[in-house]
């Protein structure tokens, strides 16, 4: 009766995945393909959209901004998330549960609300500037919004859970006795961190970093609210091209480049980490 659960039938699970695949085809693959096809057909057939994008300093600047911010966000997120994930892994489960709840709650809070909150905090007379001035670190308020500093701060905050969760997953699986063994073998704390803990956590760092980097590449809300028009990022360019200029060709080309970079990074990760796990 339950023959569809037996191993012999499990190989043909494709049938059961069909509805989801069809949905993806109809609402994801076809629209994206349509947009991409416009990048080589509008306004006239050819690669001129790509030539413009990759040939002009203005657009290259946008690519540079995008990769710079995404890279910084990934790096800073990893640096903050690692100790947090480590602390979560070794603290009593009940306390870790509370902190997880806080992290998830922040994730579930409306993105716009959170980004506007950062605008308030980061403005000239905002809390951050006032605190920095009160402690004497700065004399004058510094510009924290309408530039890439603000974008980076806002995005690090939003991306943190996406780094903490995979890192927590790998660190939790590391037997504490392995670190005790490292200590008795003579490893100082930093040697144990560099030679044992970090290598063992690398798959988690890599999957978290890929997630954060790829999400950052295509992020729109935070850059557009905290970044200002002078420091545009790729997603803003796509929106501008499609919505304001109705230039579907350029928008499609930018989206396609984003997709290629994302897939390339994903392939790299698969090659470096998945193969090793076998």
């Amino acid at each position: 009766m339950l023959s569809f659960l037996t191993p012999a039938r499990r190989g043909s699970g494709l049938g059961m995945a069909m509805p989801a695949l069809l949905l993806l085809l109809a609402f994801f693959v076809i629209p994206v393909a349509a947009l991409l096809s416009r990048s080589v057909t509008e306004p006239v057939p050819g690669l001129q959209n790509y030539e413009t994008l990759l040939g002009s300093a203005t657009y290259l600047r946008i690519f540079f901004n995008t990769f710079l911010v995404s890279g910084l966000v990934t790096l800073i997120t990893a640096l903050i998330a690692f100790p947090v994930a480590w602390a979560l892994a070794i603290m009593p489960p009940r306390m870790a549960g509370v902190i997880f709840a806080v992290i998830l709650l922040s994730m579930w809070t409306n993105l716009l609300a959170r980004t506007y909150a950062w605008m308030v905090l980061l403005q000239q007379t905002g809390l951050v500037n006032r605190m920095l001035m009160a402690t004497g670190i700065i004399d004058q308020p510094i510009q924290l919004t309408n530039n890439l500093v603000g974008v980076t701060i806002g995005m690090v905050y939003i991306m943190l859970p996406f780094m903490i969760l995979p890192l927590y997953g790998v660190i939790k699986k590391i037997d504490p006795a392995i670190l005790q063994a490292a200590a008795l073998c003579g490893a100082t704390k930093s040697q144990a961190l560099r030679r044992v803990l970090l290598p063992l956590a690398t798959p988690g760092i890599a999957s978290g970093a890929l997630m954060v980097f790829v999400m950052s590449l295509g992020y729109f809300v935070t850059p557009s609210l905290l970044g200002g028009t002078a420091n545009m990022m790729l997603a803003e360019l796509i929106v501008q091209q499609v919505q304001s200029l109705l230039n579907w060709g350029m928008g499609g080309a930018a989206a396609f480049i984003l997709l290629v970079v994302t897939l390339a990074l994903y392939a790299l990760q698969l090659r470096l980490f998945e193969g090793k796990a076998r």
Binding site: A183, L184, G186
Partner: peptide
């Protein structure tokens, strides 16, 4: 003396080889 300076050897109950 902290653990890493005691120079003591130890074999644990669980397998504690560095898997990487």
């Amino acid at each position: 003396t902290p653990s890493h300076k005691r120079n003591i050897g130890m074999v644990f109950q669980r397998y504690t080889l560095f898997p990487h």
